[in-house]
Design a protein around this nucleic acid. Structure first.
Length: 259
DNA sequence: ATTGAGACCTGTCGGC
DNA sequence: TGCCGACAGGTCTCAA
C-alpha cells in the first residue's frame, strides 16, 4: 500500500462495530498512502489528503493481500466476511476480513489524530526507547486495579493484549493479582519489579514478532496462556499453572513463582 | 476519575 | 451426528 494510490475502494457492508465514516470510499479513492504506521494495536495509513486511515483488526480481523494477477482473476467476487477491499494503483488488492466484526475502519481528518479517543492518550510503545521500568512505574502510580488489568490498559503501555500480559508477568515473576500501584516508584526511587516487568514485556513482544516470521517455530507459543494445570516452566519451579478471571478476562499464572 | 461489568458479533469446541 | 452453552487474542459505554 505504501506509495500506492487507492484506485477503487469496495465497501461491502455498512460498518463493523460502528458504521464506516461518511463518504469512506470517496475520501480514500485517488489518495496516495504516504506512510503506513502502527500505534499500539491500531494500523495507520497516512494519506496524501492529510487524513489518516485508522484500522484495527479487533479479535478476528485479518488483511489479505493479493498481487495484481490474483486480484484481476477474482474480479469483484468476495469471500465470506470480506468487508472492505482496497484496490491499489500497483494492481494489488488488500481485503479486510473480519468474522466477528470487532475491527475498526475510521478516517481521521488532518491534525486530529492526537485527539482520537483511543490513540491520542495511548501509553508508550514498549519497543521504543522511551519505555523502561521508570515509565511503567510512573504509569502505575495510584492505580487501584490489579497489575494484570493495568497491563491491559492501553494508557499504561500500548499494544499488550490478554495473552502477552499473562506471559510478561510470568517472565517477570510477578503475580497478576498484585495491586498495580505496588510496582510504582514513590517519586524517583527505582523499583526492581517495574524494571523486571518492563524488560519482560519487551522480551515477550520481541520473541512473538520473531516467531511470527518463522511459522515452523509456532509450536509451543506460550508458557502460561491456555496452560491451566500444566507444570510451570520456570527453571526449578514446581508450581502448577492456574487460571483466574480478572476484570472479565482469563489470566494464567503460576502461584509459586509469581509473587 | 477510576474501575469493572456488559455489550458488540460469529465461530469453535466440549459435553451430552 | 447434532444440538447447546461456554468461551474466545479487544474496545467502547455506562454506571457505581
Amino acid at each position: 500500500m505504501e506509495g500506492a494510490r487507492f484506485t477503487r475502494v469496495i465497501v461491502r457492508r455498512a460498518g463493523l462495530r460502528r458504521p464506516f465514516p461518511a463518504d469512506f470510499a470517496a475520501r480514500l479513492e485517488r489518495r496516495t498512502v504516504r506512510a503506513l504506521r502502527r500505534r499500539g494495536k491500531f494500523l495507520l495509513a497516512e494519506l496524501s489528503s492529510g487524513e489518516t486511515l485508522v484500522m484495527h483488526l479487533g479479535m478476528s480481523g485479518s488483511m489479505r493481500i493479493e498481487p495484481s494477477a490474483a486480484a484481476k482473476g477474482r474480479g469483484d467476487a468476495a469471500g465470506r466476511h470480506d468487508h472492505v477491499e482496497f484496490r491499489m494503483s500497483s494492481g494489488a488488492s488488500v481485503t479486510f476480513n473480519d468474522p466477528r466484526r470487532f475491527g475498526v475502519m475510521d478516517l481521521v481528518p488532518p491534525g486530529l489524530l492526537a485527539r482520537h479517543p483511543a490513540i491520542g492518550a495511548m501509553g508508550p510503545e514498549p519497543l521504543e526507547p522511551g519505555f523502561d521500568g521508570a515509565a511503567l512505574a510512573r504509569a502505575c502510580v495510584g492505580k487501584r486495579t490489579s497489575l494484570k488489568a493495568a497491563l491491559l490498559d492501553q494508557h499504561v503501555v500500548a499494544g499488550l493484549g490478554n495473552i502477552y500480559a499473562s506471559e510478561a508477568l510470568h517472565r517477570a515473576g510477578l503475580s497478576p493479582r498484585r495491586l498495580a500501584s505496588t510496582v510504582a516508584a514513590p517519586s524517583g526511587a527505582s523499583r526492581p519489579a517495574a524494571h523486571r516487568l518492563a524488560a519482560a514485556i519487551r522480551q515477550v513482544l520481541r520473541e512473538a514478532i520473531a516467531r511470527k516470521a518463522r511459522p515452523a517455530y509456532r509450536m509451543s507459543r506460550f508458557r502460561v496462556y491456555d496452560h491451566e494445570g500444566d507444570r510451570c516452566r520456570t527453571p526449578r519451579c514446581q508450581g502448577t499453572i492456574r487460571r483466574v478471571v480478572q476484570a472479565g478476562r482469563s489470566t494464567f499464572y503460576c502461584p509459586d513463582c509469581q509473587k
